[in-house]
């Protein structure tokens, strides 16, 4: 009886995953196997789109998306670690306000935030350049429409996705373990490497995965801040689905992005103990 109840409780989410996740992936997978620029799902299947993905210059977009994702994960982790430690150590009203302030932007449309950042970075009349000019008489250039701007935007948008899991992760580090390590002769750096990072790993890994997956699919940063200084893979896919009207090619690229994501996500996910994060 008990067993059966368990499966019944699973049914809604299983159904949801089937309809919302498995079915679309299946359709995209099918599309990726039909002739380029056709819409007939009943036609003969072909690997032409996958061949094209490796021969027609899609390496660049994949490279920039993956590099951007890794760079963003690394930067966000470096920024989020001290922030999480500080918020955890000073848990209280002040920390709650800071946490809230960091969380608020998540509820504002990403495009709006990026346009805001773009106004900030703009040369001459931009907020940053204009203020520096007015206050200190300093004229500066701009990173707008460069790769740096894309990276800044990615970090700016995805920082909370790294921070919040990391806060949970940092909460998994008992103070006495840090004390013990210090007492046993560990320097602060050694404590970080030997104790804090391994103990906070579940949170760090979840944050890194969230950030990575979101960055692989990110497009707006390169479009709005980068002036398409680089073409990211999402943009290349968008071109196939829109102006090119080449859904099969777009689908093949989508499947490849999904594959890259899976290759990163599953090995990491299998190594972390999610229960530790939840039971805490």
């Amino acid at each position: 009886m008990k067993q059966r109840a368990g499966y019944l409780f699973m049914a809604p989410v299983a159904l949801f995953l089937l309809v919302g996740f498995a079915t679309p992936i299946f359709i995209v997978g099918w599309y990726s196997l039909i002739e380029p620029r056709t819409f007939e799902l009943t036609s003969d299947l072909t690997l032409a789109n996958y061949r094209a993905a490796f021969t027609e210059g899609y390496g660049g977009p994949f490279y920039w998306s993956i590099l951007g994702a890794f760079a963003t994960v690394a930067t966000c982790a470096l920024l989020a670690w001290p922030t999480a430690k500080m918020l955890h150590a000073r848990a209280g009203r002040g920390a709650a306000i800071v946490t809230g302030l960091i969380a608020v932007p998540i509820f504002v449309s990403e495009s709006v935030r990026l346009f805001g950042l773009s106004l900030f970075l703009m040369p001459g009349g931009g907020i940053l350049a204009g203020s520096l000019k007015a206050l200190f008489g300093v004229s500066i250039g701009t990173v707008l429409n460069t790769k740096i701007a894309v990276w800044l935007g990615l970090v700016y948008v995805h920082f909370p996705f790294m921070l919040f899991p990391l806060l949970l992760g940092v909460a998994l580090i008992p103070q006495d373990r840090i004390d013990a390590a210090r007492d046993l002769g560990a320097s602060r750096w050694q404590v970080l490497r030997e104790i804090e990072l391994p103990l906070a790993l579940p949170g760090l890994a979840i944050g890194a995965l969230l950030t990575f997956v979101l960055c692989i699919g990110a497009n707006a940063e390169a479009a709005i801040l980068g002036g398409q200084a680089v073409t990211v893979v999402t943009r290349a896919i968008e071109q196939r689905f829109s102006y090119a009207q080449d859904w099969p090619m777009g689908a093949a690229l989508t499947m490849l992005v999904t594959l890259v994501t899976a290759l990163v996500v599953f090995p990491v996910l299998s190594r972390i103990d999610l229960n530790r994060l939840i039971r805490r």
Partner: peptide
Amino acid sequence: PNKRPTAMVFQSLALFDHRSVGQNVEFA
């Protein structure tokens, strides 16, 4: 603390659960 020639046994023991017995003992 890491510069002092002293060592402490904690009330909670504060063992490093993510390490083996040997790694715990060897830590210092």
